[in-house]
Simulated assay, not measured.
Amino acid sequence: MATQRVLAGGTSGGSTAKPFSADGTAGGTLWESRTPPNNHCGKAPHQPFGVRCGAFLRSGVNAGEAPPVRWLGSGSMNEHVIRPVRADEWEKVKELRIAALKDPAAAVAFLETVEHGESQSDEFWQERTSRGAEGRAVRQFVAEAPDGEWNGSVTVLVEEAGTSDIFEGSIERTQGHLVGVFVRAGQRGTGLTEALFDAALEWAWSLDEPALERVRLFVHEDNARAAAFYRRFGFRASGYVVPMPTDPSAKELEYVFERP
């Protein structure tokens, strides 16, 4: 059962909530509960910042900040902290990315090969991690196990209106773009991917001046498993299609999640 996060001083679903500390929080009190979530992912839109799919709540957090949050899976071994990366964690960012690029589904999941990833310099990974740790343009979230291992990640790119996207298309409205979605095989189906998406969307909706109008992602036409997950979570196919940069004969399908 997934963790619920409830507002400080309260409970959710009749459960008893217990506070816990998390190093490096940007603000707010975090709580845990073993009550199952409301399970409305994919059935109703995410709520505004502070109210999340599955009734995950937190308080005292300023827009654009993303404190770590504890998530419990079906047992204590599945406990993870969902948090943004820190600027000095480039070696772990690199390790997880290389693991993702070695995954059997990497050819239809990523626009990069493992050979390309492994050839990058330490400076590349340091810069990449620093960009994903702070500021408005990029934020990378990871799922960290009690032993410190990272078991999943998702990154939000902010696409500002009037700029170009990674496919060299024109951006007509300010929006988020989810990339680098990966969860290790042993953690798939536990709810960890949903927890990562929850964190990514909440951060996206918290941004303002200007606010993001929607969040989107692209999925390879042959990646049916990923597409099914995105639909269950609440994303919908927009009908916009682009050729895959590494193989123009293949198609990448856009899925969007409109701002609540």
Rank of each mutant, 00 (worst) to 15 (best):
H220E: 03
P245W: 04
G239Q: 10
D103K: 01
N78E: 12
F49L: 08
G60I: 07
I166W: 12
S119M: 00
G117M: 04
G28A: 07
E221F: 00
I171A: 05
G10D: 15
G132V: 09
E89Q: 05
A224P: 08
E160W: 05
E202K: 01
T29H: 08
A63I: 12
V114R: 00
K43R: 10
S21E: 09
A250N: 07
E144R: 11
E221N: 06
G14S: 03
P146I: 09
G54Y: 14
Q175K: 11
P248C: 07
V183L: 03
G176R: 02
W203E: 04
P146Q: 07
E213D: 11
R86C: 10
W31K: 06
E172F: 10
A63V: 13
A66K: 06
R136I: 12
L72F: 00
I82T: 08
D247R: 05
E79V: 03
D122Y: 03
W90A: 03
Y240E: 15
Y255R: 05
W205K: 11
V142F: 00
W205D: 10
R34D: 09
D198M: 09
V114N: 01
T29C: 04
S76Y: 01
L7I: 14
N38Q: 09
G169N: 13
F167A: 13
E115P: 02
E65H: 09
A105R: 15
I98G: 06
L30R: 13
C41W: 10
P146F: 02
L212N: 04
A26R: 14
G28N: 03
P245E: 04
E221Y: 02
V158K: 02
D88H: 11
C53S: 15
K102G: 11
E168R: 15
G132F: 02
L157M: 10
H46M: 04
N39L: 05
H177C: 02
W31S: 15
R259Y: 03
Q187P: 08
D222K: 03
A99H: 09
